[in-house]
Write a protein that binds this DNA or RNA. Structure first.
Lengths: 144, 144
DNA sequence: TTTAAATAAGATAAAATAGTCCTATATCTT
DNA sequence: AAGATATAGGACTATTTTATCTTATTTAAA
């Protein structure tokens, strides 16, 4: 479904969001431990998220990553995917046709269109405030 | 969404099905031209489909590929994906968690589960007879 | 029976994705 | 001011996916 980059990106962001919601800052080391992701690779992905202003990074001792609490409600999973470069997938033809359209549809165009719309709705409706709350309430998980 | 292998596999099979429905046999050359796929790579994928008894191959001059007409109704897209090794994706956690389950769900488990079920329904409900008919009627297309 | 045309199969190559390592830079603490 | 700890970034490596090339085999037709 998602690329590894997208998976780690989403999980890392939600983890940071959970910490931020509790007023805590977290480090790369903690993140990669808690979401079971390769550390150096996750660092690269976090750099993308910082560049896109989804996550803030603080260098130096006691540095780390955080997300301003008042931003949590406005950040959706689709924003994370956009930042790490993995969102346009869900707006393309399921069978890889360049000119797939309602007028020249691929064999699964109509059925897949509905699914694509639901995927996009899911990605655009899930905000970090809700996701972080669920994480902190212990009703969802990020570890392998 | 699908891997290239899956895309070409589905498109090639539907193309062969369309020909078979008209009582015609088709060749690798024709297939890769008509579905805009790399020839040698498509040949590999067709080998997988032949091994899984989805497609029949005939060697030699005037050889090619075909699907017995009475099989068309029983072959679903999910069978094609199974043959080329690209179906289990839609039964895994969207965020890559090994232990994702209703009891220990990932943050998008419940929403994604519904989507997964619809994807699987789509893959299991689309049979080659219908898909080939649509292709022959000119209401769906396989080319870029 | 030779030739041409077709698929089969194995080896190889190229490209994309995933992941690591090392050095630089910033910053808190002592 | 020095040292420890953190992120930033570039170079590099590994793996997987996608794609090609070459040779063998089969078979219809000339």
């Amino acid at each position: 479904m998602f690329s590894k980059t997208s998976e780690y990106g989403i999980r890392a962001t939600i983890y940071i969001a959970g910490k931020s919601q509790k007023g805590e800052r977290t480090s790369l080391k903690e993140i990669s431990t808690e979401i079971n992701s390769p550390k150096a690779f996750t660092a690269k992905i976090l750099q993308l998220l910082v560049k896109s202003n989804i996550v803030e990074s603080i260098k130096g001792t006691s540095g780390g990553f955080e997300i301003p609490q008042h931003n949590l409600k406005n950040i959706k999973i689709s924003d994370i995917l956009k930042a790490v470069g993995g969102v346009e997938v869900y707006n393309l033809c399921g069978m890889g046709l360049r000119d797939c359209s309602p007028k020249t549809p691929c064999p699964i165009h109509h059925k897949y269109k509905l699914i694509r719309e639901e995927i996009n709705a899911m990605l655009q409706n899930s905000d970090l405030e809700e996701l972080a709350q669920n994480l902190n309430d212990g009703i969802v998980f990020l570890k392998l």
